[in-house]
Nucleic acid binder design. Sequence first.
DNA 1: TATGAATGAGCCTTCATTCAT
DNA 2: GATGAATGAAGGCTCATTCAT
Lengths: 195, 195, 195, 195
Amino acid sequence: MPRTKEQNEEIRRQTKNTILNSALKLFAKKGFHGTSISDIAKDAGISKGLAYNYFESKSQLVDEIFEMGMQELVNSMPEEDKFDSPYEELNLILEQIFKLVKANEEYWRLYFSLYLQPEMYDKSHEIMGNFYEVLIGKIEKVFKKLDVKSPKNEARIFGAMLDGMALHYFLLGDKYPISAVKKEIFRKYQSIPEK
Amino acid sequence: MPRTKEQNEEIRRQTKNTILNSALKLFAKKGFHGTSISDIAKDAGISKGLAYNYFESKSQLVDEIFEMGMQELVNSMPEEDKFDSPYEELNLILEQIFKLVKANEEYWRLYFSLYLQPEMYDKSHEIMGNFYEVLIGKIEKVFKKLDVKSPKNEARIFGAMLDGMALHYFLLGDKYPISAVKKEIFRKYQSIPEK
Amino acid sequence: MPRTKEQNEEIRRQTKNTILNSALKLFAKKGFHGTSISDIAKDAGISKGLAYNYFESKSQLVDEIFEMGMQELVNSMPEEDKFDSPYEELNLILEQIFKLVKANEEYWRLYFSLYLQPEMYDKSHEIMGNFYEVLIGKIEKVFKKLDVKSPKNEARIFGAMLDGMALHYFLLGDKYPISAVKKEIFRKYQSIPEK
Amino acid sequence: MPRTKEQNEEIRRQTKNTILNSALKLFAKKGFHGTSISDIAKDAGISKGLAYNYFESKSQLVDEIFEMGMQELVNSMPEEDKFDSPYEELNLILEQIFKLVKANEEYWRLYFSLYLQPEMYDKSHEIMGNFYEVLIGKIEKVFKKLDVKSPKNEARIFGAMLDGMALHYFLLGDKYPISAVKKEIFRKYQSIPEK
DNA sequence: TATGAATGAGCCTTCATTCAT
DNA sequence: GATGAATGAAGGCTCATTCAT
């Protein structure tokens, strides 16, 4: 008797996940071009051929890894409308992002690096475009509550500041005084940036 | 009649430069891994073998490209002590950076992307470390003149904001409203950020 | 209630046929090496595994396809001894062959191509050997009735001419003026070629 | 000092020829799909990579092999206008073709087989198209001298007969009585086929 | 100094075939 | 009888690097 559809789906779900995780880990550690499908298969404990049963190509693999990461980031964003004040909300967003980046340093580094590669040009514009708007939208809402003059642009600047910090952190490693900068930002946004 | 020592050195200097420029151009357009030594040699109008006479390896080539780029950036920074007011100086720094990035978009994208790749990890920390300190130092001086409370951290934040914007611009392409954001920043830093 | 032996056999017969037809269709369209077992299974609406329940290997599959095709050709030959004149019979054979090839162009192309591949060398000699003799025998009989001098050789030449035309048609496609050539042959064999 | 242009060209010419010959030999013996670039390189005594310095792809290799073969065939055709009679010329053409095919049996088998494969469809139509016209043209001229009624079509039939014989010979191997058939044809075309 | 033929390791990908269910 | 997940060998191709000239 063949396996039931459900059994197969479960198997596929699990195997796919194993592959995805191995790929993410290795890409992050050795870079996209530094990681071969062979490496991934070995790490995932499967045969090279099987990887292609789950992903059409190495490039599609990386695409799915991206979607996964983006999704995770969106999911980790704090729910709105359950804060005492917009300040608190802004602080939480900040805190959240810092935590997320700290916890998955290599992955963020990977994400940044991958989407800056010329061969990804078009794809990155498309994927990041949507994603960026969602995140900026969230921050914009907070600034609106704070009655800031140009909330959207203010949100963009805020976002740039955060990503810039992450970037510097990646580029400088432990030399970067991330805690000090973080504290400074908290202080800076304690009072409304501009009325 | 053999060439004089000086002639030989001049030839070497020129050839090396030709190679560096071809490499930079191609890396920027097709990515580091998307560009072969063959491509570079062809573009530079020399033989593959000769390239190895000037650079030990592809990886050393990329290193030298970096130094070149960083140097250029430092050189383009405005001279201090010739401004009427610190505001003006800050504006000029801003303007300068925007201009630089706009003019060499692909190269910056390349620089960012390369230094985020894991294989560059150690090297990037080292090179970027020095460079970062120089730039932040410049900005810090301005903030000091403005009598800002924590000028170094403020400078770090300012720098993060700029690089964050560049990053977003690279990731989003023309979807990113860079002019609007720029204007907002100018306005924001027209008055002292914090006393 | 389990199936009866007869039902099972009927199912097997049908499934096998489905597979054979899918294989034939795909081989003809994409070539033997261009068609995977996966392709065939998908087209036949069965699983890859099941195909191996019916055919030991891809190569055995192709063997059976051949036998099928050869059989079909033999079956389509006109019955002897019901013609008014040998001329009429020869014409009918000609007509029959032209029709057959035209109607199954891709298959003939496949047959020719497959049996010319070195890996088929021995097998093709064996299978085609018998088949050739049957066909030539038929034609020979007609030539005998026509009282031709060397009827067997004449039949061989006649057969070569037909297959040569088919070959040229396959190699040249619509550039080949098949109708004109056909007409010429009809005319040529209207009178006894040689007495 | 680098090699002179002439030296390089000579090297390339020789190496290319070595590869071409190894490829032809192996393709003929084991088929196109049965022969790997590795096989060819090993046989030619070079590295796998070098083969790609000379041929863009396996498929381009086979193309060049074809052109080579076709050229050879055309070159081997007897010069016109130096025969006492058209009969003699026709005989020589016949003789020539028989000799050529006999001498390079495997190659002709390869040629036929390759150009019947669906993946070659378009290319074969194009290449064979020109080639066919040249050959048929030659034969047509002879038939014209013989004052045959429809010389072009008669030439097509003659050509079909020849290729059909070759085909049968390939399909049947030594079972095919090629000498007998040949003799018959000679006899058949001793007198003008049709006035 | 300069050339480009040559190497060889390694990569992505395909696919016939097996086997647990 | 039937399924499709899994295997593993093999193949086409690329490219940094070397070296004879």
